[in-house]
Nucleic acid binder design. Structure first.
Lengths: 117, 117
DNA sequence: ATGATACTTAAGTATTTGCTTAACTGATGG
DNA sequence: CCATCAGTTAAGCAAATACTTAAGTATCAT
Protein backbone atom coordinates (compact mmCIF):
# COMPACT_ATOMS: atom_id res chain seq x y z
CA UNK A 1 0.00 0.00 0.00
CA UNK A 2 1.96 3.02 -1.28
CA UNK A 3 0.94 6.10 0.69
CA UNK A 4 -0.91 8.72 -1.37
CA UNK A 5 1.06 11.87 -2.07
CA UNK A 6 -1.15 13.97 0.19
CA UNK A 7 -0.52 11.64 3.11
CA UNK A 8 3.23 12.16 2.67
CA UNK A 9 2.68 15.92 2.37
CA UNK A 10 0.96 15.97 5.74
CA UNK A 11 3.45 13.65 7.39
CA UNK A 12 6.59 15.53 6.37
CA UNK A 13 4.85 18.84 7.06
CA UNK A 14 4.03 17.56 10.56
CA UNK A 15 7.66 16.55 11.10
CA UNK A 16 8.99 19.93 9.97
CA UNK A 17 8.16 21.76 13.20
CA UNK A 18 10.40 21.43 16.29
CA UNK A 19 7.48 21.69 18.71
CA UNK A 20 5.74 18.82 16.95
CA UNK A 21 8.91 16.74 16.87
CA UNK A 22 9.30 17.42 20.60
CA UNK A 23 5.77 16.14 21.16
CA UNK A 24 6.48 13.01 19.12
CA UNK A 25 9.71 12.46 21.01
CA UNK A 26 7.84 12.64 24.31
CA UNK A 27 5.30 10.14 22.96
CA UNK A 28 8.01 7.59 22.17
CA UNK A 29 8.42 7.33 25.96
CA UNK A 30 4.76 6.41 26.36
CA UNK A 31 1.28 7.94 26.05
CA UNK A 32 0.74 11.45 27.38
CA UNK A 33 -2.03 13.95 28.01
CA UNK A 34 -2.24 17.26 26.16
CA UNK A 35 -0.95 19.13 29.21
CA UNK A 36 1.99 16.79 29.52
CA UNK A 37 2.88 17.41 25.88
CA UNK A 38 2.51 21.15 26.46
CA UNK A 39 4.64 21.28 29.63
CA UNK A 40 8.13 21.60 28.03
CA UNK A 41 6.91 23.90 25.25
CA UNK A 42 7.02 27.66 25.64
CA UNK A 43 3.66 28.42 24.09
CA UNK A 44 0.02 28.65 25.02
CA UNK A 45 -2.14 25.54 25.38
CA UNK A 46 -4.28 26.37 22.34
CA UNK A 47 -1.10 26.51 20.27
CA UNK A 48 -0.20 23.03 21.46
CA UNK A 49 -3.69 21.78 20.65
CA UNK A 50 -3.25 23.14 17.12
CA UNK A 51 0.05 21.32 16.73
CA UNK A 52 -1.61 18.18 18.05
CA UNK A 53 -4.33 18.52 15.41
CA UNK A 54 -1.63 18.64 12.72
CA UNK A 55 -0.05 15.49 14.15
CA UNK A 56 -3.42 13.71 14.21
CA UNK A 57 -4.29 14.74 10.65
CA UNK A 58 -0.93 13.42 9.52
CA UNK A 59 -1.78 10.06 11.07
CA UNK A 60 1.36 10.15 13.22
CA UNK A 61 -0.58 10.38 16.47
CA UNK A 62 -3.84 8.87 17.67
CA UNK A 63 -5.79 10.25 20.64
CA UNK A 64 -8.83 9.35 22.69
CA UNK A 65 -10.58 11.33 25.37
CA UNK A 66 -11.60 9.85 28.69
CA UNK A 67 -13.36 12.15 31.11
CA UNK A 68 -11.68 15.48 30.68
CA UNK A 69 -8.26 14.23 29.71
CA UNK A 70 -7.16 13.47 26.13
CA UNK A 71 -4.51 10.78 25.90
CA UNK A 72 -2.14 10.75 22.93
CA UNK A 73 -0.17 7.89 21.41
CA UNK A 74 2.33 7.58 18.59
CA UNK A 75 1.30 5.63 15.52
CA UNK A 76 4.51 3.83 14.50
CA UNK A 77 3.04 2.60 11.21
CA UNK A 78 2.71 6.12 9.85
CA UNK A 79 6.25 6.96 10.98
CA UNK A 80 7.43 3.89 9.10
CA UNK A 81 5.74 4.97 5.85
CA UNK A 82 7.53 8.34 5.98
CA UNK A 83 10.80 6.54 6.63
CA UNK A 84 10.10 4.14 3.78
CA UNK A 85 9.75 6.92 1.23
CA UNK A 86 13.11 8.42 2.20
CA UNK A 87 14.78 5.01 2.31
CA UNK A 88 13.53 4.06 -1.17
CA UNK A 89 14.95 7.27 -2.64
CA UNK A 90 18.23 7.02 -0.81
CA UNK A 91 18.72 3.39 -1.81
CA UNK A 92 17.88 4.22 -5.43
CA UNK A 93 20.46 6.98 -5.43
CA UNK A 94 23.13 4.84 -3.78
CA UNK A 95 22.58 1.98 -6.22
CA UNK A 96 23.02 4.49 -9.00
CA UNK A 97 26.29 5.72 -7.50
CA UNK A 98 27.49 2.12 -7.26
CA UNK A 99 26.71 1.46 -10.93
CA UNK A 100 28.49 4.69 -11.82
CA UNK A 101 31.47 3.61 -9.72
CA UNK A 102 31.58 0.26 -11.51
CA UNK A 103 31.40 2.01 -14.85
CA UNK A 104 34.19 4.41 -14.01
CA UNK A 105 36.35 1.57 -12.66
CA UNK A 106 35.75 -0.33 -15.90
CA UNK A 107 36.66 2.70 -17.97
CA UNK A 108 39.89 3.06 -16.02
CA UNK A 109 40.70 -0.64 -16.46
CA UNK A 110 40.02 -0.44 -20.20
CA UNK A 111 42.31 2.56 -20.42
CA UNK A 112 45.03 0.76 -18.46
CA UNK A 113 44.77 -2.25 -20.72
CA UNK A 114 44.64 -0.15 -23.86
CA UNK A 115 47.59 2.07 -23.05
CA UNK A 116 50.64 1.77 -25.31
CA UNK A 117 53.78 2.44 -23.19
CA UNK B 1 27.05 14.67 14.51
CA UNK B 2 23.39 15.06 15.50
CA UNK B 3 21.68 17.40 13.02
CA UNK B 4 20.63 20.72 14.54
CA UNK B 5 16.87 21.18 14.90
CA UNK B 6 16.78 23.85 12.20
CA UNK B 7 18.42 21.52 9.71
CA UNK B 8 15.68 18.96 10.32
CA UNK B 9 13.04 21.69 10.03
CA UNK B 10 14.30 22.58 6.58
CA UNK B 11 14.71 18.97 5.46
CA UNK B 12 11.24 17.80 6.42
CA UNK B 13 9.77 21.05 5.14
CA UNK B 14 11.51 20.44 1.82
CA UNK B 15 10.12 16.90 1.68
CA UNK B 16 6.57 18.05 2.40
CA UNK B 17 5.89 19.33 -1.13
CA UNK B 18 4.97 16.92 -3.96
CA UNK B 19 6.76 19.01 -6.58
CA UNK B 20 9.96 18.91 -4.57
CA UNK B 21 9.61 15.17 -3.93
CA UNK B 22 9.12 14.73 -7.68
CA UNK B 23 12.33 16.64 -8.31
CA UNK B 24 14.20 14.50 -5.78
CA UNK B 25 12.78 11.37 -7.34
CA UNK B 26 14.03 12.47 -10.72
CA UNK B 27 17.46 13.14 -9.24
CA UNK B 28 17.74 9.59 -7.90
CA UNK B 29 17.96 8.57 -11.56
CA UNK B 30 20.96 10.83 -12.09
CA UNK B 31 21.88 14.52 -12.25
CA UNK B 32 19.57 16.87 -14.12
CA UNK B 33 19.36 20.45 -15.31
CA UNK B 34 16.76 22.88 -13.98
CA UNK B 35 14.72 22.53 -17.18
CA UNK B 36 14.76 18.76 -16.91
CA UNK B 37 13.47 18.98 -13.35
CA UNK B 38 10.81 21.44 -14.50
CA UNK B 39 9.63 19.39 -17.48
CA UNK B 40 7.10 17.09 -15.73
CA UNK B 41 5.83 19.84 -13.40
CA UNK B 42 2.86 21.97 -14.32
CA UNK B 43 4.22 25.27 -13.16
CA UNK B 44 6.37 28.14 -14.38
CA UNK B 45 10.14 27.88 -14.46
CA UNK B 46 10.62 30.53 -11.74
CA UNK B 47 8.39 28.43 -9.47
CA UNK B 48 10.63 25.42 -10.06
CA UNK B 49 13.71 27.51 -9.34
CA UNK B 50 12.14 28.54 -6.03
CA UNK B 51 11.49 24.91 -5.14
CA UNK B 52 15.07 24.12 -6.07
CA UNK B 53 16.28 26.86 -3.72
CA UNK B 54 14.33 25.20 -0.89
CA UNK B 55 15.93 21.86 -1.72
CA UNK B 56 19.39 23.42 -1.76
CA UNK B 57 18.88 25.25 1.54
CA UNK B 58 17.75 21.98 3.09
CA UNK B 59 21.02 20.39 1.99
CA UNK B 60 19.17 17.67 0.08
CA UNK B 61 20.43 18.86 -3.29
CA UNK B 62 23.70 20.34 -4.49
CA UNK B 63 24.04 22.27 -7.74
CA UNK B 64 26.76 23.79 -9.85
CA UNK B 65 26.51 25.95 -12.91
CA UNK B 66 28.52 25.33 -16.03
CA UNK B 67 28.00 27.76 -18.86
CA UNK B 68 24.29 28.52 -18.85
CA UNK B 69 23.08 25.23 -17.45
CA UNK B 70 22.77 24.47 -13.74
CA UNK B 71 23.22 20.80 -12.93
CA UNK B 72 21.55 19.35 -9.82
CA UNK B 73 22.47 16.31 -7.76
CA UNK B 74 20.97 14.57 -4.76
CA UNK B 75 22.91 14.65 -1.50
CA UNK B 76 22.28 11.21 -0.02
CA UNK B 77 23.90 12.09 3.30
CA UNK B 78 21.23 14.66 4.12
CA UNK B 79 18.50 12.24 3.11
CA UNK B 80 20.02 9.73 5.49
CA UNK B 81 19.98 12.18 8.41
CA UNK B 82 16.26 12.78 7.95
CA UNK B 83 15.70 9.05 7.79
CA UNK B 84 17.82 8.56 10.90
CA UNK B 85 15.67 10.88 12.98
CA UNK B 86 12.50 9.01 12.05
CA UNK B 87 14.15 5.64 12.56
CA UNK B 88 15.41 6.55 16.04
CA UNK B 89 11.92 7.59 17.13
CA UNK B 90 10.23 4.58 15.60
CA UNK B 91 12.71 2.16 17.17
CA UNK B 92 12.32 3.86 20.53
CA UNK B 93 8.57 3.48 20.34
CA UNK B 94 8.71 -0.13 19.21
CA UNK B 95 11.14 -1.07 21.99
CA UNK B 96 8.71 0.47 24.42
CA UNK B 97 5.84 -1.57 22.97
CA UNK B 98 7.96 -4.72 23.32
CA UNK B 99 8.71 -4.00 26.98
CA UNK B 100 5.00 -3.35 27.53
CA UNK B 101 4.18 -6.64 25.81
CA UNK B 102 6.64 -8.50 28.01
CA UNK B 103 5.15 -6.88 31.09
CA UNK B 104 1.60 -7.77 30.09
CA UNK B 105 2.62 -11.35 29.26
CA UNK B 106 4.28 -11.61 32.68
CA UNK B 107 1.17 -10.28 34.41
CA UNK B 108 -0.97 -12.88 32.61
CA UNK B 109 1.42 -15.68 33.58
CA UNK B 110 1.43 -14.55 37.21
CA UNK B 111 -2.35 -14.57 37.18
CA UNK B 112 -2.49 -18.06 35.62
CA UNK B 113 -0.12 -19.41 38.24
CA UNK B 114 -1.91 -17.75 41.09
CA UNK B 115 -5.43 -18.76 40.15
CA UNK B 116 -7.33 -21.09 42.56
CA UNK B 117 -9.73 -23.29 40.56
C1' DA C 1 26.39 40.56 -34.56
C1' DT C 2 21.72 38.18 -33.80
C1' DG C 3 18.62 35.27 -32.08
C1' DA C 4 17.50 31.49 -29.29
C1' DT C 5 18.43 29.04 -24.92
C1' DA C 6 18.72 28.51 -19.95
C1' DC C 7 18.04 30.33 -16.42
C1' DT C 8 17.52 34.69 -12.96
C1' DT C 9 15.52 38.60 -10.60
C1' DA C 10 11.86 41.31 -9.07
C1' DA C 11 7.43 42.36 -7.71
C1' DG C 12 2.88 41.22 -6.57
C1' DT C 13 -0.81 38.19 -4.57
C1' DA C 14 -3.70 34.56 -2.46
C1' DT C 15 -3.36 31.10 0.90
C1' DT C 16 -1.50 28.74 4.79
C1' DT C 17 0.98 28.65 9.19
C1' DG C 18 1.97 29.50 13.86
C1' DC C 19 0.97 31.86 17.11
C1' DT C 20 -1.92 35.04 20.48
C1' DT C 21 -5.88 36.33 23.83
C1' DA C 22 -10.55 35.85 25.47
C1' DA C 23 -14.39 33.34 26.33
C1' DC C 24 -16.45 28.71 26.85
C1' DT C 25 -17.61 23.58 27.89
C1' DG C 26 -17.52 19.81 30.51
C1' DA C 27 -15.53 16.77 34.05
C1' DT C 28 -13.92 16.22 39.20
C1' DG C 29 -13.22 16.99 44.05
C1' DG C 30 -14.66 18.83 48.38
C1' DC D 1 -23.37 23.43 44.58
C1' DC D 2 -19.20 25.53 43.10
C1' DA D 3 -14.50 26.17 42.31
C1' DT D 4 -10.84 24.08 39.82
C1' DC D 5 -8.87 21.54 36.18
C1' DA D 6 -8.29 19.87 31.29
C1' DG D 7 -9.12 21.01 27.22
C1' DT D 8 -11.84 23.54 23.36
C1' DT D 9 -13.47 27.23 20.28
C1' DA D 10 -13.22 31.55 18.08
C1' DA D 11 -11.22 35.56 16.28
C1' DG D 12 -7.44 37.99 14.82
C1' DC D 13 -2.78 38.84 13.15
C1' DA D 14 2.07 38.75 11.37
C1' DA D 15 5.03 36.01 8.75
C1' DA D 16 5.97 32.40 5.59
C1' DT D 17 4.57 29.72 1.27
C1' DA D 18 3.61 28.84 -3.31
C1' DC D 19 2.71 30.53 -6.93
C1' DT D 20 2.24 34.23 -10.95
C1' DT D 21 3.88 37.54 -14.81
C1' DA D 22 7.25 40.68 -16.70
C1' DA D 23 11.65 41.95 -17.53
C1' DG D 24 16.29 40.96 -17.12
C1' DT D 25 21.36 38.44 -17.91
C1' DA D 26 24.55 35.56 -19.43
C1' DT D 27 25.77 31.78 -22.76
C1' DC D 28 25.85 29.35 -27.24
C1' DA D 29 25.07 28.57 -32.20
C1' DT D 30 25.05 30.51 -36.61
Amino acid sequence: MTPEPQALDRMFQALSDPARRNMLERLTRGPASVSELAQPLEMSLPAVVQHLAVLEQSGLVKTHKLGRVRTCQIEAGALQRAEQWINDRRIGWERRLDRLGDYLAQQTTDQEEGKTP
